[in-house]
């Protein structure tokens, strides 16, 4: 600790007792000594009456002065201690504010770094990709006749690779964008959002039969745009990993997570092996091979970032070939 030491403690009962003790000792001493002195100095009984009276008045004066001195000292000591305590509080407050300011600055610097990184990604990594893609296309357009099927196959591989890298860059940007900007809390009806997102998927893939069981009017507090991204990722995953099932079922509703009301989205699809669950929310980490379920591994990382930004929690549970279930909250535990 570098700050000032704590101010001394003052116990009022002890201080009062000390004053009474000093008073008692002085009074006893006065009574004992003054009687001896009077006896020694004055032999004339006629004088004794007024000497004793004078002695009494003197006693009152001396002890009054003594009490005045003792009480004044005590009061000034109390004042001094109060001042010390106040100074300490001000100092602690200032130190706390300095620390908050420092942390805020660090956070801002980190955010700016992330922003400029995302910016560089969006500007600079896309140009070479466009070139790979464009010149492969130009080769096919201009030299089609000279290329045998094998050569055209290689070109297709180049274009597939650049398309995949394009998806990775877009995913990285989506991840960094997901939590940029202010968190704008309002009441968000997740049931409506999830229904809409499932309908959109059904329109894109009309051949699939998916039973959606959605608890109506699940309303949470959070940032509308960010929470839409959360459910979009979870709904999309549920849709994707239940493909190939004859009877796919996707459920959405409320549950409990560590004693707090939470929201879940689950499917009865491929699931995953819980042994690998630690990698679930890491960017670009996937629990399925590309030939099983294609993807870039950015969705759940985005989900977790958004939920953490809200102060909430998200967990994933699954069993292989029996489905996966994701549960999340959107508020810190204390207030929720």
């Amino acid at each position: 600790m570098t700050g000032p030491t704590r101010p001394g403690q003052l116990r009022t009962s002890t201080a009062a007792l000390r004053i009474v003790l000093v008073y008692t000792i002085v009074a006893i001493a006065w009574i004992a000594l003054s009687d001896l002195a009077v006896d020694a100095l004055f032999n004339n009984p006629a004088h004794l009456v007024w000497v004793n009276m004078l002695k009494g008045w003197l006693f009152v004066l001396v002890t009054a002065g003594l009490l005045y001195g003792l009480i004044t000292r005590l009061v000034s000591r109390i004042k001094q201690l109060a001042a010390e305590r106040e100074a300490l509080e001000i100092e602690q407050q200032a130190r706390l504010e300095r620390r908050v300011a420092q942390r805020t600055a660090e956070l801002q610097a980190a955010n700016e770094e992330l922003n400029s990184f995302a910016y560089a990604v969006s500007h600079d990594l896309r140009a070479p990709l466009r070139a790979m893609n464009g010149f492969s296309e130009a080769l096919i357009e201009d030299h089609h006749a000279e290329l045998d099927p094998a050569a055209r196959g290689h070109l297709d591989q180049i274009r597939a690779a650049s398309a995949r890298m394009h998806a990775l860059i877009d995913g990285l940007l989506a991840l960094s964008r997901a939590t940029r900007g202010d968190l704008d809390r309002s009441r968000v009806n997740l049931s409506e959002i999830v229904s809409r997102q499932l309908e959109d998927l059904q329109i894109q893939e009309p051949e699939r039969t998916v039973e959606a069981i959605i608890e109506p009017n699940v309303v949470v507090e959070g940032d509308q745009r960010m929470l839409e991204a959360v459910t979009a990722n979870l709904v999309h995953n549920a849709w994707k990993y239940s493909a190939g099932l004859e009877r796919a079922v996707i459920r959405f509703g409320t549950t409990q997570l560590d004693g707090q009301t939470a929201v879940y989205i689950e499917d009865n699809g491929a699931g995953f092996d819980m042994r690998h669950a630690a990698a679930l929310f890491k960017p670009f980490q996937r629990l399925h091979r590309q030939d099983e379920f294609p993807g870039i591994g950015i969705g759940l990382a985005t989900v977790q970032r958004i939920i953490h930004r809200h102060g909430g929690d998200v967990i994933g549970e699954a069993r292989r070939n029996e489905g996966a279930r994701f549960v999340f909250t959107t508020c810190p535990r204390e207030s929720g």
Binding site: R126, R130, N133, S136
Partner: peptide
């Protein structure tokens, strides 16, 4: 915005 896909870009 320049599309990354060349056909779209063109």
């Amino acid at each position: 915005p320049k599309p990354v896909d060349f056909a779209e870009f063109a």
